[in-house]
Structures are given as C-alpha cells and as structure tokens.
Design a protein around this nucleic acid. Structure first.
Lengths: 158, 158
DNA sequence: CAGATAAGTTCTAAAAAGGAACTTAACAAC
DNA sequence: GTTGTTAAGTTCCTTTTTAGAACTTATCTG
C-alpha cells in the first residue's frame, strides 16, 4: 500500500497518520505549540530542509491544521498558526512527550516540563475514561465495528 | 538535521519520534494493540513491503517496544509482542485515534470503537491534569526548562 | 543604489521505499 | 525421497523522497 492511500482506510489511526504521520510533521507542530510561526523560525529550530518544510506546511494548511495569515503588507509575509483542529492535537503531543519523559530521558529527568496555570504543578497528563473516570488500560478495551465502518472499497463503487 | 539525530535532541518529543515517528511504525503498533503478532499478519494487514516491515520490526525490538518470542520449535518462528514500554504507548495511540474519530470521520461516525470493560461504555479517553483533575488546555501551560535539559552538545564533550 | 530579509523554488546527489522474485529451514503428503 | 507448503526474511532493481546548497522575487533600510 502506498502511504497516501491511508486516508481512505476505515481506521481513524490510518486517517490521522495520513495527516500527521510524517517524519517531520509532528516536529513542526511541536514548534507551533511552543509559539513559532514563521518559515525561517521552523527552519532554524528543526534543521529541516526548506523544500520539505514548504511541502509540509502546505499539507498542514490543506488539512486545516494550520492557517496562513499575512503579518505584513508590502512583501507579503505569511505566518502559520494553529487552527482549532490543530489545537485538538494537543493530547497527541502531550502523550508523545510524556512517553519520552518516561522512557527516553536520562537519570536527571525530563529536558522540558510544562506548568499548569490552574494548579501551579508540573503537568502530568493522564488519560481517563470520560464515563467512569478510571485510568485507561489497553487490556480493558474490546474493539468493535463502529457506525462509520466501510467494508473495504465496495461502498464508494455502488 | 538528519532524522536519526533526533534521538540526541533535548526534547522528549524528538526522542520519542526517533522511535515511533516513522510513516509505518505507528501502523504496525496499531496492529499490535489489536492483537496481531506475526510477520505475515502485519504484511497482509498493512500492505507494507516486506523489506520495510522487517526493518521497522527490528528497530522496535531494538528500542524495547516489541519483543520477539519463538512460538514454534523446528523452523524457528518468531512473533512480536508488546513490552511494557510498548503498552505505555497506548495513550499515544488512543489520542491519535480520537483525533481521527473527531476530524477525519464521515457523518456516520467512527469506523471502529472501543468498549471499556469497567463501565461498559464506548471509550472516550480524556486527558486531565493528574494533580488538579482539570481538562488540559494547551493555552493553560507554560513551558519551562526541566532537570534533564542539556544545552546543545557541550555536556557530552566535557 | 548596495545590502538585508522572508519565503520560497530549482537543481543534483544520496537515501529510502515500492515491487517482485529468491532463500532457508523444517515439516507434511504422495 | 521428491514435491509442496509455511513463515520470515533477503536480494535486486526501479521509483520516490530527502538533503544540501544555490538561486529568485519582492520589498524595506541606510
């Protein structure tokens, strides 16, 4: 299967990865969440090639994750800002960062931490079931076909 | 910057992505969470080339996310199973899937759902602050240097 | 008018991925 | 005891993507 065909899979994982599952895309989004907005800021921060950066930014704009906004007249300069759809990726970011803090940090601890304005504590996000409030363990889940399931191809055709 | 250098960045996001930030790796892990374990199962499920699959499985084993276990004597057949480190990626999976359910599904809804054994409900995971219990909003976070921060290169050298 | 800036684009070489066939090692069936 | 099958890879060759560096375009600054 080609990568671009993932968008058409009957799987939200595959569909999401068709948007953000790229080597550099999540790194660009990390920078967006830290407040970077301009082409050259991303370039300097990531050491990505300009070519790939331009391509990924375009894709993120096409997918509605970022939006372009001119910040200067004259020689039009655009900046890239997260849309609501982009902000909704925060749990993805945070869970990735937390896995890294837990499993990839040295004995000194996390390289970067986030402080929560509400409680003043260093943030430890945790995933709970919105219904019962329990911590989620993959071993407690059973997978079922959902309402939007399409049985491989047939239903576009006829 | 080359992709493989991400492991050395002082950022948990970059470090984690050096393990799972590959086009196919998260798709392989999705299959692991659904219970697939063998080379040919992954191949059939993903339509990935055998070459890339072999490479990604090896990397995941090297990183301690999967472990190989022989399931037959004679012609040794190995299967790949999640380690604890692998199971810890569940929040990452779930948050990615939920973004897809929310933003990439058609009007009929999610293609696949998960039921929670504890409460019997369809699972809607949510990220809360482990300290104050509030929902996490990126706009309530401030980023700070953590204990494991390394100021770009110098501290390996001397 | 000579830079400097910002955001790209173009070009070539190197690396990675796709696709199909080949390998290995044991068992099973004829 | 040759033929076939299964599982997990490798090999080989082609097509796509990336890396890296230079070039372009359209202003603003001194």
């Amino acid at each position: 299967m080609r990568w671009r065909d993932l968008k058409d899979e009957s799987c939200s994982m595959a569909r999401t990865l068709s948007v953000i599952g790229d080597r550099w895309t999540l790194m660009i989004l990390r920078d967006c969440f830290v407040g970077l907005r301009r082409f050259e800021q991303f370039e300097a921060s990531l050491g990505i090639t300009r070519h790939v950066l331009a391509d990924r930014l375009k894709k993120l704009v096409d997918e509605g994750v970022l939006k372009k906004a001119p910040y200067r007249e004259g020689p039009v300069r655009e900046e890239y800002r997260l849309t609501e759809r982009g902000f909704d990726l925060y749990p993805v970011m945070l869970s990735i960062v937390q896995w890294g803090d837990q499993h990839m940090a040295d004995e000194r601890g996390a390289p970067v931490v986030r402080r929560h304005a509400n409680c003043g504590h260093i943030v430890h996000g945790k995933m709970i079931c919105a219904d019962c409030g329990e911590d989620l363990d993959p071993r407690d889940m059973s997978v079922e076909i959902g309402p939007g399931f399409a049985p491989a191809k047939e239903n576009q055709a006829r």
